[in-house]
Amino acid sequence: MNFIFDNDRPIYIQLVEQLKEYIVAGKFKAGEKLPSVREFAMQIKVNPNTVQKALAEIENQKLIYTERTNGKFVTENEKLIENVKKELADQKVQKYFQDMNKLGINKEDAITYLQGK
């Protein structure tokens, strides 16, 4: 696991984003057990409360679930993971179009440009 943080933005938001990426990319597999909050915090060198907050946020989005005594696990609902993946991909594409738009390149040209690469 390698998390890179930028001190300019709330750490927990960055952690949520990166964790989601790890899950949809399959680096955390469906049904896999996550490290405990404390272990996690130590590994990535952030505050345990921050990790707690980030995990709670992801749990709200149903991407992970808590088994009362065993700890936290990645959801086994592959369809949900797929949906989140699409959602994130959409966001990236939107961002691409917006950035290109700033350069005065419209949507169609942007697509052509991308195909050319």
């Binding site: 001190n7 709330p10 750490i11 060198k45 409360n49 921050t50």
Partner: peptide, 29 residues
């Protein structure tokens, strides 16, 4: 700073700010 929950700024013997760290980052970008 990334291991902090809260920050307290102190200067010239006075506390000038106390805030949760992430809240402050969010507010000031």
């Amino acid at each position: 700073e990334r291991i902090l929950d809260e920050v307290i700024f102190i200067d010239k013997g006075k506390i000038i700010l106390t805030s949760p760290a992430d809240e402050l980052r969010n507010k000031e970008n």
